[in-house]
Design a protein around this nucleic acid. Structure first.
Length: 612
RNA sequence: GGUCCUAUAGCUCAACUGGAUAGAGCAGCUGCCUUCUAAGCAGCAGGUUUCAGGUUCGAGUCCUGAUGGGAUCACCA
């Protein structure tokens, strides 16, 4: 913020003039004053004590006087220990309010000419979206809004994992047990329908596996096992994948289907596109309800062969090396990582190969400066390796790569496990929060005179606000506990609490009659007004920091504080019934608060209702 | 076992990246609707920031170690 910079610059000037020492402006902490102390802004001068060899209080007074003289906005100051607390003039605050109430660029930064691509969601097409995807999607969406707000050109993309053994499992189960069921014939949402067949496959497979465990071959294997202390259950639990790949008839059928797919078998491909089509229409419906969209979709079926040529090129450049069996590797052991395979001996690629190729083609297509991958933190190592490889290959955008790693979402009962059926489905969750919003709003809301459609829209906005805010208020990198009961809460630190502050402002707006005067005519700004002004003043900084950290939670917490301070102001002071000067000032303040609340919530992907 | 992440009130989360007396919400207990929406406001209670050392004017934050929890260490994606 300009004022912060100005204060820092003057501290630097004073240090130079009075002590002949030069210091970095960035080394001086300046921030809002804690509310127990008198003042608006605080400068911490402890860092200068050693250099200047004077007591903190002496320096404080010296610099306080200097600041007062050279910064017009400063009315007075006091010194406590090593802190200079500055009080700003009422003129400054009134000007701030007038300057920004109609400034639609407040909180935004001009275009910076840089382009960032952000990848998020990235579902598999064998089952519907769940709570984990929701955290991913909300983070990705919010970050893209925030980055755009601070001046980046943003390209939102998702990778759709539409091929591989998983989708073959759903297809096989549908073929065998589906009796031609379609979303139309059953009335089921496409992604849910396909997901049901995936579950069906797993169920039949487990039955097959359990029957096999009772047979002679399995008994012999168990007797030969290396770790004699292992129980029978543990042994077969660990053996499951191997059984799938080596003994299972079902597994073999699924693998055959995958091979047919890779060989472009007409029947398999046709079933594949039909079933994926069902899934896509299901996903689209969910994305729509979440209010998100993408600029570009990458289908793995198109990109899975990418990267081979680049890896071979890397061998020629001696960045990678070839082993005796013909497989290609990268050695990262000098960087504290392991060797990593990039191409199998038979020339087929692995996950990493594809990611290398995809990154390069994205750069070719879009000329991006930055690339953000929103992917769960279980893949931290993968991205560390990927970024290192791209750096070794001297890719021009290598410095601009960022893995936005977020923690897993747990339930109060523990980890979500698809095998145990404890996964929270995205659509169910959305239904629940909207139903709860409807219930609460019907009891407590003030929605008289609205049509059913208007009411439904309000219920939707409130419910979605509860859900989105609940997830986004938590720092992304932290693992979070998702309590379904708490997520539909509408009191306290919640989305609806913030919406309520806005709704109160709107309600006053509807009741306001006639034009208001100049807010600058008001004298004697009250504490609860000053608190709001100070906080509004900090908004652009909050957005900037959120962008720098790729972290929407800072904005979420800021908005809660702002709403809280507004509720207090609303409670303490009359607005419509105030004297003319106070009324003009408070109405204007109302407007700026409403603007910032709306703008900030929009950065979180949350819409405001006019009434609730 | 190696590497990385994490530990703050009964529960869920904050703490301006080293600054002042660690803050909110939920749950519990008290008050406040004939004044602009009570989805609100005010108050009470709740803490040796997992533990042990260290660095300095100053540590929840940085360093070392221990302990608990998690992730990862596939020619799966």
């Amino acid at each position: 913020m300009q004022l912060f910079d100005k204060i820092r610059t003057e501290i630097v000037n004073a240090t130079k003039r009075q002590f002949g020492s030069s210091i970095e402006p960035g080394s001086i902490p300046v921030g809002p004053t804690k509310k127990e102390f008198e003042g608006d802004m605080t400068v911490v001068i402890f860092p200068l004590v050693k250099l200047l060899r004077k007591s903190p209080v002496e320096i404080g007074h010296l610099f306080g006087e200097h600041l007062q003289k050279h910064v017009a906005a400063i009315e007075s100051f006091n010194v406590v220990q090593g802190f200079i607390n500055l009080t700003l003039t009422e003129t400054f605050w009134k000007q701030f309010l007038k300057d920004n109430v109609h400034n639609d660029q407040f909180g935004r930064a001009p275009k910076n000419g840089e382009k960032v691509m952000i990848e998020f969601s990235s579902p598999n097409t064998n089952k519907p979206l769940h709570l984990g995807h929701i955290r991913n999607i909300l983070l990705g969406w919010s970050c893209s809004k925030i980055l755009e707000c601070v001046g980046y050109e943003v390209v939102k993309v998702q990778v759709i994992n539409d091929r591989g053994i998983a989708i073959c499992k759903s297809m096989l189960a549908w073929q065998r047990y589906g009796n031609g069921e379609t979303p139309e014939s059953s009335g089921k949402k496409g992604d849910h329908l396909v997901g049901e067949y995936y579950v069906k496959f797993e169920k039949v497979f487990v039955e097959e596996y359990e029957a096999w465990q009772k047979g002679e071959a399995a008994g012999a294997l168990f007797d030969e096992r290396k770790d004699k202390s292992q129980s029978r259950d543990d042994f077969f639990k660990a053996y499951k994948n191997k059984y799938f790949n080596e003994y299972s008839a079902l597994g073999e059928a699924a693998r055959e289907m995958l091979i047919k797919w890779e060989n472009n078998d007409e029947e398999v491909k046709s079933l594949w596109s039909t079933m994926n089509g069902w899934v896509y229409s299901g996903f689209d419906a969910t994305y729509d309800r979440l209010g998100v969209n993408f600029d570009k979709l990458y289908y793995e079926s198109d990109t899975w062969k990418l990267g081979k040529d680049e890896v071979l090129e890397g061998v020629r450049k001696n960045v990678f090396f070839k082993k005796e069996d013909g497989s290609i590797w990268v050695d990262l052991s000098t960087l504290g990582m392991d060797e990593k395979i990039l191409l199998r001996a038979d020339g087929t690629s692995v996950y990493m190969t594809q990611d290398i190729g995809t990154a390069m083609s994205r750069y070719r297509d879009y000329g991006i400066d930055h690339m953000v991958y929103v992917v769960a933190d279980e893949q931290n190592y993968h991205f560390k390796v990927l970024f290192q490889i791209l750096e070794l290959l001297e890719e021009p955008y290598a410095e601009g790569l960022y893995h936005l790693a977020y923690g897993m979402v747990d339930l109060p009962s523990g980890k979500m496990k698809s095998r145990e059926g404890t996964v929270v489905d995205a659509d169910d969750l959305i239904d629940d929060v909207i139903a709860e919003a409807k219930k609460v709003a019907s009891e407590r809301g003030d929605l008289e005179g609205l049509t059913e459609a208007e009411k439904d829209e309000i219920f939707r906005r409130i419910g979605m606000a509860a859900l989105k805010y609940f997830i986004l208020k938590v720092n992304p990198q932290k693992r979070m506990t998702f309590d379904p009961e708490a997520s539909v809460d509408m009191q306290g630190t919640t989305g609806p609490y913030i919406q309520n502050a806005y709704v109160r402002i709107r309600s006053i707006g509807r009741k306001l009659e006639g034009a208001i005067g100049d807010p600058a005519d008001y004298e004697g700004i009250a504490d609860s007004e000053k608190t709001l002004l100070l906080q509004l003043f900090l908004y652009p900084e909050v957005v900037k920091k959120a962008a720098a950290d790729y972290d929407p939670s800072g904005i979420a917490n800021y908005l809660y504080d702002l709403a809280k301070n507004y509720h207090r102001f609303y409670h303490d002071l009359p607005i419509l019934n105030a004297d003319d000067g106070a009324k003009s000032f408070r109405i204007t303040l109302n407007q700026l608060v409403a603007n910032v609340l709306t703008h900030g919530m929009d950065l979180l992907g949350i819409e405001m209702p006019d009434r609730m």
